[in-house]
Design a protein around this nucleic acid. Sequence first.
DNA 1: AGAACATATCTACATATCTAGATTTAAGGA
DNA 2: TCCTTAAATCTAGATATGTAGATATGTTCT
Lengths: 110, 110
Amino acid sequence: MFSKTSYLCNMEIIDINKALANQTRLNILKWLKDPEANFKPHEDLGHFNDGVCVFHITERAGLSQSTISTYLIQMQKASLIIPTRHGKWTYYKRNEAVISEYIRALNNQL
Amino acid sequence: MFSKTSYLCNMEIIDINKALANQTRLNILKWLKDPEANFKPHEDLGHFNDGVCVFHITERAGLSQSTISTYLIQMQKASLIIPTRHGKWTYYKRNEAVISEYIRALNNQL
DNA sequence: AGAACATATCTACATATCTAGATTTAAGGA
DNA sequence: TCCTTAAATCTAGATATGTAGATATGTTCT
């Protein structure tokens, strides 16, 4: 049988390190840890269950919409965040399982 | 008073993430964890107290001497490794204090 | 001093990343 | 259906990274 924990392979760790090798992307991951503290409440949804929408992240980061969209997709490909579509908004939330597995992997391997 | 532990600032974490966003550099850091297992003994010195010389790391990595030298200097600038000159050889060993501080910082901040 | 060797630096080129404006796609509302 | 808005994709130029060959520097040996 397989263990319950998911192990990250080398390549995935490299992709995560690349994603976190940029101040804005690192900030985004930290901001998403506490959406209430870092973003204004989203009027149409009223909660942060699925994270924060691209528009608000763009606003907070101060870079262009296309740049932030590109960053978020890169972070999503590295499995750091999870997108959820609500109507015309895309919400991104942290993938806590992968983030803690990543830290555990560094602890063991580094 | 200041705490005894040294804290890594944001910029240093980014530099470490950049250094670790490459398979060869990540490998080098892991290899240096156990020089006996990963490198042949150095004839002229007979121990690994100061790590492993560039020549042996180059040999193990299979990239050019100039590439590995460049990588090692980048890792040193990110404080991940410490160079020691013995005659014509430069030995590099892990900077364990920074590495564990880095992991601790990720644990706290990520 | 001169030869030989280990490492660092310089130069160069290919590829990747950063970033934004323009365009396209998808969804909602008039 | 048409207009508006949010987000993704396309295009492009500036900058950074990956990587190696050539050269310079520092050290040891003869």
